[in-house]
Write a protein that binds this DNA or RNA. Structure first.
Lengths: 184, 184
DNA sequence: AAATATACGGGACGCCCATCCCGTTTGTCT
DNA sequence: AGACAAACGGGATGGGCGTCCCGTATATTT
């Protein structure tokens, strides 16, 4: 509606977004906004003008990741069989979670309502999950009564495993356990 | 070493402990200490004299629960077969977690170091877990390569499931999934 | 090059919380 | 009953954080 952002404003916005994504991923959502500003080399006012609240900053970051995730999920659904697609996406989410503390905080509800962001986004992450799950269920590789919340809980567990007790072999083992557990 | 607490001091200490346990269980660790004091009908100074820091208050609460948990675990190990003992204790922990938000906060690392409390306590919760797990593994009902951290991660998942998406049938289903997943 | 809107920086404000302190009250012991 | 120590209450203190504001600087437009 209004005219485009001034060139320096665009640069700063992008830089803040990038630094914030890295920082939240590495250290979680508890990092102060002042610190984000400092690391990005801008004033706190600049951050809060582009993103009025800390939550809006985090939402903007998530939105960028959503597209990628949904694309990955639909790609998998087309290319692989229903079983592999589901578990490949599950594994990808575990990897993303292990590398992204901010995402874990959000999933754990420690601060922000991930669910709400996911729902009001134009990228339907939950829908993509649902499709993968239902595909695998129709193919008979996942028990009929399991639902998305069950899957999310198992995902939370896998990510928790990696965060609290790092162990090179843990991820594969947990994925195996989950796979067996979900089998009909 | 020093003389016993004065009668009113004993009463207040017990009352604070009781109110804090209820409150943390219902609302999590983020409840302010002032609020605990208010609900217990004492001044904030009284709380902080008995428990110099918020963490020490929570530790004192946990210590009371430890004994009960360890007793339950060893009882199960003696009375039931190895398989039932392990999964019964697992189910009991899920129930405890679902009813106790403070415990979940602690497990999630959101605030306090549960691990440290558990270790320096004279009640060896982790040891009890370990014994149940190893018993079930020797009996051939749980895969050999699973370790305590894996179990804790699955537990976290189950508790998360109940907290974020209440559903009467969810607990039994999640327990089934876990049981299948851990089977050799 | 001058004029104007736009954006910047970072300090100020307000809120919340754990912890500490001290004047007052209350239990305990003689 | 009286005196002393022990405990109480709750306000004060200090620190952290998100958000807002405004004087200054800079990009854009004419």
């Amino acid at each position: 509606m209004s005219r485009p952002l001034r060139a320096d404003a665009q640069r700063n916005r992008a830089r803040v977004l990038e630094v914030a994504a890295e920082t939240f991923a590495a250290e979680g959502l508890s990092v102060p906004v002042h610190e984000i500003a400092r690391r990005a080399g801008v004033g706190t006012g600049t951050v809060s003008r582009h993103f009025p609240t800390k939550e809006s900053l985090f939402q903007a970051i998530l939105l960028g990741r959503m597209e990628e995730l949904v694309r990955q999920a639909t790609d998998l659904a087309e290319r692989e069989g229903p079983e592999e697609a589901f578990f490949a996406f599950f594994a990808a989410m575990v990897g993303a979670g292990a590398a992204n503390k901010g995402l874990v905080d959000a999933l754990a509800g420690a601060g922000f309502d991930f669910q709400a962001v996911a729902e009001e986004s134009r990228y339907d992450v939950m829908g993509a999950w649902q499709a993968l799950l239902e595909g695998a269920q129709r193919a008979g590789t996942i028990r009929e009564d399991a639902d998305i919340a069950d899957v999310k809980a198992l995902l939370t567990g896998c990510i928790d495993r990696e965060r609290h007790a790092p162990d090179p072999s843990a991820r594969a083992r947990m994925l195996t356990i989950v796979r067996h557990g979900l089998h009909p």
